[in-house]
């Protein structure tokens, strides 16, 4: 596994941990325990089926030292129902978050003003209702936050931001990793 691809660094930074797993009841709990036991805060976690049918991808974001994330990932990889676990620094991934903003219609005096903000922010209007509109934006946290600040004067009724999803930049695919891994074990 590629834990040591990155130079040893001692400052804290954001790491993206990927775990590819079987779809098993309770596995999420098993994985979470590995963090809570070490008093490590998970910034975000998302789970979805991966490009390989039946294999689930956990995307876990933490802020930690390299040494810590290395140990955590080994503990995750060790779980019986985990096929593969790895981690990457931010710069090795392309990542996004999704944000939604609900604005009351009553506060929108000039519709074109809102439309301009939406356009400039590369966001889009998801729903228009007589009472409210819902705007959606994908992007990095700073970007969705920036839109939040811009919409704030209109009075944001609800705001939600998803956990981060990410894709690695390298070209090696999961099947190759799994094959290599299977070959390394008897």
């Amino acid at each position: 596994m590629d834990y040591n691809e990155f130079a040893s660094e001692s400052e804290e930074k954001n790491y993206t941990i990927f775990a590819f797993t079987e779809n098993k009841v309770g596995l999420l709990n098993r994985i979470i325990i590995i963090f809570t036991r070490r008093h490590i805060n998970i910034e975000s976690i998302t789970v979805s089926e991966s490009e390989v049918r039946g294999v689930y991808r956990y995307t876990i974001i933490i802020r930690s030292k390299l040494e810590t994330v290395e140990k955590l990932v080994k503990q995750i990889a060790k779980q019986v129902d985990v096929l593969r676990a790895s981690f990457y620094p931010e710069e090795a991934t392309v990542f996004q978050e999704l944000a939604m903003y609900k604005i009351p219609m009553s506060s929108i005096v000039n519709a074109s003003e809102v439309e301009k903000i939406v356009r400039d922010s590369h966001a889009r209007i998801l729903t228009v209702d007589p009472e409210y509109i819902i705007i959606e934006k994908t992007g990095h946290q700073e970007e969705t936050q920036e839109l939040f600040e811009k919409l704030a004067p209109f009075g944001i009724l609800q705001f939600v931001r998803s956990g981060r999803v990410a894709i690695t930049k390298h070209m090696k695919d999961l099947r190759t990793y799994l094959r290599e891994q299977a070959e390394a074990y008897s």
Binding site: T21, E22, V80, D81, V82, L83, Q181, A182, E183, A184, Y185, S186
Partner: peptide
């Protein structure tokens, strides 16, 4: 053998 379990490294 269990596909996701790697008990013994070569």
């Amino acid at each position: 053998k269990i596909a996701s379990y790697f008990p013994k490294p070569k």
